[in-house]
């Protein structure tokens, strides 16, 4: 079985995000970029499945600018066998990403597509679900445990009420949550080996995918600055303050 893992290039989670003065987005110029941490978990899970003898090949995929190949190299150094770069300069919306992954799934026929439950840049959390719908395959989202059993996978999901375990037929889409695993560190010799692994470059046109026009970002603004608190003398005063502010 092949596994396909999608990884996204995002602003590193340690960076303090700054909004551009014109509100058109956040500053990425000179800012450290990394693999989306949820995708790292997806990558790690794929590696573990392969190491357990349940898969033969791992294909890492990214959609983005030329520099997104850095994240593919990271995936290859972690242990992916080959990579596909769908080169796109514009920001990618979840539906476009899902269409691309669907096109690639048709081509590669993976037994499972793994991806982070969301990307930490815009936190939309939609791509996996949209892919499952387009591909017409089962989905197991927010996974915190994945067990393979022949042509099925038993997946424990993190849901509002706690944990839920479901069984899905393969091929399936799995989106990964934080508790699933702890991603490995890249080993130095593997960085050199990753250089020799192939990255295929393709485009939306090559894949016959049309970019989704759906969403338009009208403005980006930082959260409002916190106002100073106020001390109250009694419970009554507290209650009336809360009422005045329409909070209760």
């Amino acid at each position: 079985m092949k596994l396909m893992v999608s990884v996204k290039r995002v602003v590193d989670y340690n960076v303090r995000i700054q909004v551009k003065p014109d509100g058109s987005g956040v500053v990425t110029d000179g800012v450290k970029m990394s693999m989306n941490p949820f995708d790292e978990i997806a990558m790690e899970e794929a590696l573990r499945i392969k190491e357990a003898g349940n898969a033969e090949e791992i294909i890492a995929v990214t959609i983005g600018e030329q520099k997104a190949q850095e994240q593919l190299r990271t995936a290859l150094a972690m242990g992916a066998d080959r990579a596909i770069h769908v080169e796109v300069d514009e920001d990618i919306q979840p539906l476009t990403a899902a269409r691309v992954l669907k096109a690639l799934a048709d081509k590669e026929q993976p037994g499972m597509v793994l991806l982070g439950k969301q990307a930490i840049d815009d936190d939309q959390g939609q791509t996996g679900q949209m892919l499952a719908a387009l591909w017409d395959r089962p989905q197991a989202t927010f996974a915190s445990k994945v067990d393979l059993d022949g042509q099925k996978a038993k997946v424990t999901r993190e849901v509002d009420a706690g944990l839920e375990t479901i069984e899905v037929d393969l091929p399936a889409v799995v989106t990964t949550d934080l508790r699933l695993n702890e991603p490995r560190y890249v080993k130095l010799p593997d960085i050199m080996k990753a250089k020799k692994k192939p990255i295929d470059t393709t485009s939306l046109a090559d894949l016959g995918v049309e970019a989704a026009p759906g969403l338009k970002v009208t403005n980006t603004a930082p959260p409002p600055e916190r106002q100073g608190g106020k001390k109250v003398e009694s419970v009554d005063e507290l209650v009336s303050e809360l009422k005045n502010r329409g909070l209760i």
Partner: peptide, 10 residues
């Protein structure tokens, strides 16, 4: 630079 950065990142 790519291999240097990857080592430093790790």
């Amino acid at each position: 630079r790519e291999t240097f950065d990857a080592a430093i990142e790790t």
